[in-house]
Design a binder for these strands. Structure first.
Lengths: 193, 193
DNA sequence: GTATTTACCTAAAGTCTTTAGGCAAATACA
DNA sequence: TGTATTTGCCTAAAGACTTTAGGTAAATAC
């Protein structure tokens, strides 16, 4: 009996690929076992259960995304950094829709706190150093940017903007222009309607 | 044998409640049958399959949300309208997390085109009449607002902002201030970094 | 070279989905 | 009002995924 050489990490990687092919919520322990030509029960030595597998894929995607973002930020500042950072999210979502969906998985607080999601927030904060924001406005802005990237990716893969003018690419560029303008001119005092 | 009096709409409503209780992706035909004290197979006369049920719940949530938004917009304009509209999304997500998740379900293009999602976009566009935006900027702005509401709701229910200062409520208010400022001062020409 | 650990296996029970075909209640209609 | 049709819910059954328990052989330790 030749062993397959499974490891949690190997299963996670394969799960991420599977997610990109069939969609994150179609990822199943059974299908993974099939791909490794191994019986289903065997995977349960490496992964606690189906939920655990999905969480691992999510964490993997967050790491991968944070690595790419860190790369993109190197040597950039200001709008240049903002655009590069934002494009990482967008490109990742297009290139790896399943992993991107995984990165949006709801994690329980401790898991989230130990995830690369923290690095994402730190990098977003770093970008804001190119703008004149003090606390708590910086935090508000971090959350706004997170929402936009998250939300845009979700709507785009949900087909929200496809097949309608203007084209999604143009909107993306203009949204980044708008966010840059907003960050340069962040309203510190609530405006009265 | 007393009949249960099932209808697609009844099942959809019950499914929406179930989603709020256990989470949208835990909604199952079996559990629904159990709640109506009816055999599982019976539901298949009213609903094509599990996916169909979920789609119906999503469409129901979109309608409900659009109705609330329309109500909130009545008699309001400018920032007042923007805030009221945004709060509808936020409150809905807090009150009905399962339905809100359903409203984010990926629908196929035709279904989406026939859904209340169209009304949402129209209402967003109506809000922008309170600001000085011409096409294609209005469309870009509609998409930005959609992304922010979508994304913020997702991050908030994912626990992204909980247990950290400043409080999510404050961020929400300040983000709306920021969006209002942005819409009043939308950059028509790409800025150079 | 034996002992222990580890990787994968078989077996089995539980859940959910979905289809096929049947009987009885509701409804239509003479 | 009595018969005919439709419709709603049922039983039965097959297929897929999850998960646990306990076994055997391969890898590793010493």
């Amino acid at each position: 009996m030749v062993r397959a050489g499974l490891t949690p990490h190997l299963l996670t990687r394969a799960g991420a690929e599977l997610a990109d092919e069939v969609g994150f919520d179609q990822v199943t322990v059974s299908e993974l076992a099939r791909r490794f030509d191994v019986k289903v029960a065997s995977l349960y030595s490496h992964v606690r259960n189906s939920q655990d597998l999905k969480t691992r894929i999510a964490l993997f995607a967050l790491e991968e995304l944070a690595d790419r973002a860190a790369d993109a930020l190197a040597g950039r500042a200001g709008k240049d950094a903002l655009v590069a950072f934002a494009n990482v999210y967008r490109d990742y979502g297009r290139e790896h829709p399943g992993r991107a969906a995984a990165a949006r998985l709801r994690l329980d607080p401790e898991t989230a706190a130990a995830s690369a999601g923290v690095r994402h927030a730190q990098m977003t904060r770093a970008i804001l150093r190119g703008y004149d924001l003090t606390e708590p406005d910086a935090t508000h802005a971090v959350r706004l940017l997170g929402s936009v990237f998250h939300g845009y990716a979700g709507l785009e893969t949900a087909g929200g903007f496809s097949h309608s003018a203007p084209d999604s690419e143009e909107t993306w560029v203009r949204i980044l222009d708008a966010l840059d303008a907003l960050l340069r001119n962040w309203p510190t005092e609530p405006t009265t309607p």
